[in-house]
Write a protein that binds this DNA or RNA. Sequence first.
DNA 1: GTAACTGCAAAATATTTGCATCCTT
DNA 2: AAGGATGCAAATATTTTGCAGTTAC
Lengths: 122, 122
Amino acid sequence: MRNTIARTQILDLITNSKTALSHAEIEQLLDGLCNRVTIYRVLDRLIDDKLVHKIINVDGSLKFAACRNCSDHHHDSHIHFSCLNCGSVTCLESVEPVFKIPRKYKVQEVNFTVSGLCPDCT
Amino acid sequence: MRNTIARTQILDLITNSKTALSHAEIEQLLDGLCNRVTIYRVLDRLIDDKLVHKIINVDGSLKFAACRNCSDHHHDSHIHFSCLNCGSVTCLESVEPVFKIPRKYKVQEVNFTVSGLCPDCT
DNA sequence: GTAACTGCAAAATATTTGCATCCTT
DNA sequence: AAGGATGCAAATATTTTGCAGTTAC
């Protein structure tokens, strides 16, 4: 793993953003600093390295957010809030949902998204 | 809304399937009965008509399942189980998760997916 | 110096749209 | 008969891959 400009810049953007960023948003923010393809590859790498989460948005689009405490494996059981008005996706770290799955299913990961209006759009 | 062959067949497939179906699976099952584009259009229509749910899978792919009780609006707050081995997606109708979102957020929809191993793959 | 990273072009995929034709009612 | 539904081709959009050149360590 090398500290390249692209990697550093992309990780900075994601870390400093309040909301999760899409590939397109990252590309726009970088403003030509690096190629679109590089962004794909750096994101994959950051996810492998457990520095960034991949979030599947309610519309199926992808968003990326900084990991909080994923050292050896991603653990992303908090809720993501997706705003239907401005499109922002926010990690609600504090909220852990409670649920029961029939025993015959073996649970490994969890992906919870709630959509509606964020505080800014209410 | 017309009762065309494509519409009838596609709705039948989805209704009779234990698991949610992807566009590709539907296309394969129909085996050339209708065009790929038609499947896209029929699915959109069935969703509009509240006969079919669109489910966003953990990998971002789309799956379609029959609606249970969505008369005027989709209400899809149950958990979807996504098998990481066989790729099947199942609606767990009986399980309603409990969670609390900060008041400043206005909740409209919910999308909960749990992934792991389904009973057949354990 | 070398292996990893990057950019460009092109391939592969997935979805949407325009338009002429067909079919349900 | 008429308007919605369909098929085909092509346009769009998104992501992946091959390869040559560049860069971090």
